[in-house]
Amino acid sequence: MRPRPIRGERALADATARLIVEYPQLTRIDLRQTLPCVGDLPRAACARLFRVSAALACSRSLRRVVTSSDHLAFARNVAPQMLRTIQKHARAESDDLPLGASLNFLDRRDMTAAGFALSLRGLGDGGEVQHTWLRLRMPREIVEAAVRFHARDVTIEDARALLDEASRLMRGEPC
């Protein structure tokens, strides 16, 4: 909501106070009910996690990404040095998960939005406060783009498993 990034403790405290005034339900959030791999990540790493989980969801189709220019575009826009790992992943033997819309594998915004939709699906239907918290973590344009990827046909367990596996693949790598 701010035109400039928050820098400094005072500005952070002011922004947090305004956020709680606007979204009082956040005071009732139980972080144990959020997705464990998302709760402790900085925003940029969280977005990368979403991109990797979306890539895993469509890893069978990602096997068709073979040109060196596509490899470079994937590394630049989605996740550096992850394409070959995702293409060789056991998940690539299964059909792609139905995300509700076609996905551009080389578009950062599309991949982040699809992964964000999967994470909302992983929270299930009972966590409205957690949904609000997660929506506030991502830029508005990602939240709006995620509406295309409703992922209704993906089970909650599959969505959580994708996020857990993406987290495992990212472990130890700089974001």
Rank of each mutant, 00 (worst) to 15 (best):
A17R: 14
I20F: 14
G39N: 01
C37R: 02
T34V: 13
D40W: 05
N104M: 08
L19Y: 00
V52D: 07
H71A: 13
N77I: 00
L134Y: 01
V129P: 08
L162H: 10
E165L: 01
E157C: 03
I156D: 06
R168I: 09
L31R: 15
R148E: 01
L106I: 09
R64K: 11
A57G: 15
A75I: 06
R148K: 11
D96L: 00
R135L: 00
H89N: 15
G127N: 15
L35T: 09
A159L: 10
S69R: 15
D158N: 09
R76D: 15
E141W: 00
R2W: 10
V21K: 11
T16C: 10
E93L: 11
G124Y: 10
A73H: 11
L134A: 02
L169A: 10
Q81G: 12
G122C: 11
F116W: 01
E173P: 06
R63F: 00
E141K: 04
T34P: 06
A15N: 14
T67V: 03
W133V: 07
E141M: 01
N77T: 07
D30C: 08
G126F: 11
H89R: 01
S94I: 01
V143C: 09
A54R: 00
R43L: 13
D95G: 03
L120G: 02
A92E: 02
R18V: 04
S53G: 04
Q87D: 05
R168T: 15
R18Q: 09
L31F: 12
R4D: 13
C58S: 14
A15S: 09
L41C: 03
H71P: 00
D40G: 09
R4P: 00
N77L: 08
A114W: 03
R60E: 13
G100M: 13
G39I: 03
V52C: 09
R152Q: 12
L26N: 07
L41E: 14
M111H: 08
T155I: 08
S102A: 13
L118H: 02
G115P: 01
P80D: 13
R137W: 06
Q130E: 15
V65T: 10
H150W: 09
L19W: 04
L41Y: 05
A44E: 15
I20H: 12
A47L: 07
R171S: 14
L120H: 12
V65H: 06
T112N: 10
D96V: 10
S167W: 10
R32M: 06
R32H: 07
Q87M: 03
P42Y: 12
S119T: 14
L99C: 13
R48I: 07
T16D: 05
R43F: 07
L26S: 01
K88H: 04
D40C: 04
A75R: 03
P3M: 05
T16K: 14
K88I: 07
R160K: 14
T85S: 10
R168M: 03
R152K: 13
L72E: 13
R84Q: 09
T155C: 03
M111G: 02
L123P: 04
M111T: 05
Q25F: 08
L19C: 11
E157I: 06
R7S: 08
D70Y: 08
S94M: 01
D110V: 07
A75Y: 02
